[in-house]
Nucleic acid binder design. Sequence first.
DNA 1: TTTT
DNA 2: TTTT
Lengths: 159, 159, 159, 159
Amino acid sequence: MAKGVNKVFLLGNVGKDPEIRSTAGGTIVASFSLATADRAKDQQGNWQDKTEWHNLVAFNRTAEIIRDYVKKGTQIFVEGKIQTRSWDDKESGQKKYRTEILVNEMSLLGGGPGRGEGAGASASSGGYSRSNTSSFDQRTPAAQPDYADQGITDDDIPF
Amino acid sequence: MAKGVNKVFLLGNVGKDPEIRSTAGGTIVASFSLATADRAKDQQGNWQDKTEWHNLVAFNRTAEIIRDYVKKGTQIFVEGKIQTRSWDDKESGQKKYRTEILVNEMSLLGGGPGRGEGAGASASSGGYSRSNTSSFDQRTPAAQPDYADQGITDDDIPF
Amino acid sequence: MAKGVNKVFLLGNVGKDPEIRSTAGGTIVASFSLATADRAKDQQGNWQDKTEWHNLVAFNRTAEIIRDYVKKGTQIFVEGKIQTRSWDDKESGQKKYRTEILVNEMSLLGGGPGRGEGAGASASSGGYSRSNTSSFDQRTPAAQPDYADQGITDDDIPF
Amino acid sequence: MAKGVNKVFLLGNVGKDPEIRSTAGGTIVASFSLATADRAKDQQGNWQDKTEWHNLVAFNRTAEIIRDYVKKGTQIFVEGKIQTRSWDDKESGQKKYRTEILVNEMSLLGGGPGRGEGAGASASSGGYSRSNTSSFDQRTPAAQPDYADQGITDDDIPF
DNA sequence: TTTT
DNA sequence: TTTT
């Protein structure tokens, strides 16, 4: 029986083309950064824009959608959960932490220059459809993403 | 004009008595960890409990409430936003990151042993009131928390 | 492909013992009201408590948990979606609407007198466990709830 | 001290040009409907699109933004709370209910045909800016909207 | 480091 | 109709 709530909502623009990898078991993993713009008062009481960057990771079907439709600049809305992975840095011997958002659901929004064109791939047929919102659900993640290049073992996999 | 969404909901138990500090400017700052329990399928398909730890920080009125009512074990619900601070570690010269949840609203829940008694401080009068929910709002944070002991400058202050 | 977001979070107390029904197909349906207490400024600028009432409905496994653990006064946290059903009132001939929250996830909180005892049924063993949080997930609803007594047809079923 | 949580997130498209009114006290009130598209399995197990309609209401600064930038078709993201108003219908003598979402924050998204042109007003300067997200905050509502034409008295005003 |  |  699960307990607790750990829920995140982010709406922003993707910082770089997502990095797509596959695990030995065939699971697709998408990693990318998302910028959420915020407006806050500075110490002089003036409104200042501030950008917060988030590390996002998605698996399976959601990762496929990201591979096919999301790139630098794409505006998306995601629902996910916060996860912090830790490991011992080989060089410094220090404990290092990386906090990521595991994406559970994603909606592609119409905004931003990173939708519908470019070298990669896109199902957007331009014109009106470019302004649609599409939402995807990743309810049943299951697999062993290959995080080996980051020194991440299977024990770090969140499901 | 602000843009984007960066919203977090957490329901869990506090890991240790909160750390309360004051800035030179008189702003009260509360820092503490929160555990959210999760239930996820492992690679054998069995349900496993997993605890995720979050670093929370609150200011002003919310920090006062935390100082007075929250301690190790207290069950709370919070709404907040994700923030990642970074600095250069003096020893290793490496860039370090710390992701925190800036608490905007908090509800004290009835659960857990960490409500209403103990060495610290508490306004809870025990008995029935232990099962109440109380909610606090921190809408207008304003000040310069003294993060000096963490090598944090005023520029890192989120408002 | 789904589009859009329709997400609700409620934390409050149950108004009456939930009503449990079964459909012809065997689906369990739980209906109940939830009060969320709010604090808002009145026209004189004074803070006033205000209670908002919500109609909640849950199916299958979540309905079973509600049947077994939730009753009048129980404090819960739910995640769900908003749904408005409409029908033609036979008497007045008017179109009538009823907005409900379809519960997707629920956490039992420790608060309130409606936990663990009473005439109905409860798996709570009292004492310490009263302060626990338990969370349940209803990810794959599937069936034909019998809403016949409300003049509701299968077409109104949300899944 | 407030209690409880009553929080709603909606992402969808506006159904009609918003209705803008002013109260005797000068408060601006915006009312409009929002469609959130959902994807759900029907009884045959096929995925079906389903649209849920919501009644939204906003006051003050948020209402002004809506007046100036939102119209039929505009894609928006809103955060708000659920409110149900009730009154006695004069004709039938029946108690009637209307559930609305009181909008607290709104983000204009790039999608949809209802952005940037039209008879009304718009600050959108076309081109790139049309794909931006703008977010507005309504933290301190205060006033007496004139709901007289709906048989609504000051007592129904949520703040 | 919480909680069950 | 809950809860404090």
